[in-house]
């Protein structure tokens, strides 16, 4: 069967299934379970209306339960077993993790990523948003800055691998060094700092995201408050940092936390560039290393990541709600 036909059948079945579900379930509710007749039809109508929202909520709750809640509980349970899941070992996997220097290195590196990447991406995004609003070719600049968003993490990593390549014929960095008659180096093998060279890739990708959101927020600031500040004598810097930025603070926080959550999940960049070698391991790539080899340990890592993400996530949701209110 051709893929197009398959796709069409899937769409028809999916949409048709949804329509059938909502129609049939409502029909059953109204005609069979609480029919508007008998001794007290009004009460039946009220009861049917009290149940109805749940008919609509059920598919979403069911899907989320199946694909989110169950895996969380399942992972937590699985992480208490050994590599092939045969033997219950309690917190053994976690003890092993704590004792593993690579894991500790990954946690440390992850904290570096969380500190640097969201801050840098938000900062550059904010600058780009403000500056591109004021120049004629701002929209072109914006498109260029946004474009990396459309590249997959692996693709972006490969592009930057070329930039960092240990060969003046390929690598941009070494081409510049070569111009100044310096020996070629491999930036990805410089201990500690190579972490930052990898972070650059994610910052490069995420700056566009931050810029787009913050640019919209900047435009939403009432023009009069800016004019009032101009009359009050604020210079462009004061205008930006004392009037504009505070007014879009909720959006900045949402962008920041969104990128933070993303940072805690990205493994592709490390995987595609250094493979976690040279002291660049982070938690997601560390998890990938153990996947299929020691599932118990890998799920334990996954659980650790989730526990780290959770507070950021909650903070993010609270902020986003505050903003929409």
């Amino acid at each position: 069967m051709s893929p197009i036909l398959q796709g069409i059948i899937t769409i028809v079945l999916g949409v048709g299934g949804c329509v059938t579900y909502f129609y049939a379930s409502n029909l059953i509710l109204d005609k069979v379970i609480f029919p508007p007749k008998g001794s007290d039809p009004g009460r039946n109508i009220n009861r049917a209306n009290a149940v109805r929202p749940w008919l609509f909520l059920f598919p979403a709750i069911f899907a989320l339960g199946l694909y989110l809640a169950y895996p969380v509980v399942g992972s937590a349970w699985r992480s208490l077993f050994d590599r092939d899941g045969a033997q219950f070992i309690g917190l053994g996997n976690y003890e092993k993790l704590a004792a593993d220097p690579t894991f500790r290195q990954a946690v440390f590196n992850n904290f570096l990523w969380v500190l640097v990447v969201p801050a840098a991406a938000t900062f550059f995004g904010l600058m780009a948003a403000q500056l591109t609003d004021r120049i004629k070719w701002g929209n072109i600049a914006k498109s260029l800055i946004f474009m990396p968003m459309a590249i997959s993490f692996v693709g972006a990593s490969l592009i930057w691998k070329f930039v960092y390549a240990n060969n003046p014929q390929i690598g941009l960095i070494n081409a510049i060094r070569d111009y100044f008659q310096l020996q070629p180096i491999d930036p990805l093998q410089i201990p500690f700092w190579n972490n930052f060279f990898l972070m650059v890739i994610l910052v490069w990708i995420q700056t566009g995201f931050a810029m787009v959101i913050l640019s919209a927020a900047l435009r939403g600031i009432p023009e009069e408050t800016i004019e009032a500040a101009v009359l009050d004598g604020a210079n462009p810097f004061q205008l930006f940092f004392k009037i504009k930025v505070p007014q879009i603070m909720p959006t900045i926080v949402v962008v920041w936390t969104t990128i933070t959550i993303l940072v805690l999940k990205v493994f592709d960049i490390v995987y595609a560039t250094t493979g976690g070698n040279f002291g660049t391991q982070i938690l997601p790539s560390y998890m990938m290393q153990y996947m299929f080899r020691d599932d118990g340990r890998a799920t334990a890592v996954a659980f650790v990541i989730m526990i780290i993400v959770l507070p950021v996530m909650i903070w993010n949701i609270i902020q986003a709600r505050k903003e929409t209110r």
Binding site: P222, T225, E227, A228, L231, D232, G233, A234, K242
Partner: peptide
Amino acid sequence: PPANRGIAMVFQSYALYPHMTVRDNMAFA
């Protein structure tokens, strides 16, 4: 520049700085 003209303006939409208290709004200039 507007700030050096010795003028002050009251806007139709008030144009108060939403993130500042009344005191800070008045003290900003």
